[in-house]
Amino acid sequence: MEVFAEFLAGIDNPQHRARTEEVLGWVTKEFPNLMPVIKWNQPMFTDHGTYIIGFSVAKHHLAVAPEKAGIIHFSDEIVQAGYEHTQQLIRFPWDRPVDFSLLEKMIKYNILDKEDCSTFWRK
């Protein structure tokens, strides 16, 4: 989590900071083989140099970005969980609990789907 310390310190709202730290800590604990990194001023996790999932902080939500393929694959589940999404990110509102089971599915999907990927992003 040290790699995220400066990013977390820059989140002014203490509740948003705590939630972001909770989510990043959860990913670190549940997926210890993933590499925590900061790229483009955002916390993300990689596996063998390829992007798995990233996060960003907005006024009303924590944005979760599993790449477009992850959004497409889980679109129905994302909507059923009550979250809004675009082609590139899912909005986890600050005032609702995080659906960690959905987050886990998306991360596992990307790890498996990208196990032979040699580039950072999918082509």
Rank of each mutant, 00 (worst) to 15 (best):
F120L: 14
H73T: 15
V23L: 08
E67Y: 09
D113M: 15
T20L: 02
F31D: 05
D47T: 03
E84R: 13
S75W: 07
R96E: 13
T86Q: 02
P66Y: 03
Y51R: 10
Y109F: 15
I11K: 04
S75G: 11
M35Y: 04
T50S: 15
L89P: 00
L8V: 06
V23R: 07
F74K: 07
I111H: 13
S56W: 00
Q42S: 06
A63H: 01
E21M: 01
V57E: 07
G70V: 07
L112M: 15
I107G: 09
E84D: 13
L102V: 00
F100V: 01
H61S: 12
E2S: 09
I111L: 15
P32E: 02
Q15N: 14
A18R: 15
F31E: 04
W26P: 06
D116E: 15
N41E: 11
V64N: 01
R19S: 11
D95L: 07
N13K: 11
E104A: 12
K39W: 12
L112V: 15
N33F: 11
S56Y: 03
S101K: 13
L103T: 08
V98Q: 06
I107S: 10
L102A: 00
Q15G: 07
K39E: 07
F7R: 00
E104R: 14
H48V: 12
K39C: 04
Y83W: 08
H48S: 14
P66A: 08
E21F: 00
H60K: 14
P43F: 00
Q88I: 01
E21C: 02
L89R: 08
A58G: 09
T28L: 05
K123H: 14
V37N: 11
Q88T: 06
I78K: 11
V27C: 02
E115T: 14
A9V: 00
K59R: 10
P93D: 05
W40N: 11
S101L: 10
I52A: 06
K105W: 02
G54M: 02
F74R: 08
K123L: 13
F31T: 01
D12Y: 01
Q42P: 00
